[in-house]
Computed example of a mutant assay.
Amino acid sequence: MNQPKIIAYLKPTCGWSQGVRAILRKYQLPYEDRDIINVPAYREEMIRKSGQPFSPCVEVDGELLADISGQELEDWLIAKGIVEASDHPVDAPTDQGCSGEHHGEIPVRLNF
């Protein structure tokens, strides 16, 4: 089976991004990890390709999956026949969100 070309637009520590990485490791799929936090050009590229600002986004052989969890990615990969379902455990939660600090959010102070 040919390995698909995978580009993953991810945050370094986000729970959703870690879930996508866990699925790609589970199936030993090589991929390019594009850090959308530390490389603004990758974030701009992701937004341009996906038409939206939410991550993770994963491109598999030119097909873009926007705002996807690791579990959704695994389901898609199986449905497309790219991988066969496996009960091999993953090393990170595949559907866990991030807390605000993972998004680089700055608290807003309102003064009334």
Rank of each mutant, 00 (worst) to 15 (best):
P40Q: 11
K80N: 10
T13P: 05
G70D: 02
M46I: 03
D75W: 02
E84L: 03
P107Q: 14
T94E: 01
G62N: 06
N111Q: 15
P12I: 15
C57R: 00
R34L: 13
K11R: 10
K49R: 09
S86M: 02
A85P: 12
P4C: 04
Y9C: 12
Q18D: 05
R21T: 08
Q71R: 06
Q96D: 14
E32D: 15
A85T: 13
S86N: 08
G70K: 02
N38P: 14
C98W: 05
V60Y: 12
L73K: 00
G70C: 02
W16K: 01
D61R: 02
E74N: 09
Q3V: 13
G51V: 14
A8Y: 09
K11I: 01
A41P: 07
Y27G: 01
Q18P: 12
Q52E: 07
D67N: 14
A85Y: 10
K80E: 02
I37Q: 11
Y27S: 03
Y31K: 09
W76A: 02
I78H: 01
Y31V: 00
P93Q: 12
D35M: 01
R48F: 11
S55M: 13
L10Q: 03
R48N: 14
E84K: 06
P4N: 04
I7N: 09
L24C: 10
V83S: 11
V108C: 15
E84A: 06
S50V: 15
E59T: 00
A8P: 04
S55C: 07
R109N: 08
Y9M: 11
H88Y: 04
L77W: 00
G81A: 09
I37H: 05
G51E: 07
D87F: 02
N2W: 11
E44W: 09
V20H: 03
A66V: 11
P40L: 06
I6W: 03
S86C: 02
P30S: 14
Q3F: 07
D95P: 00
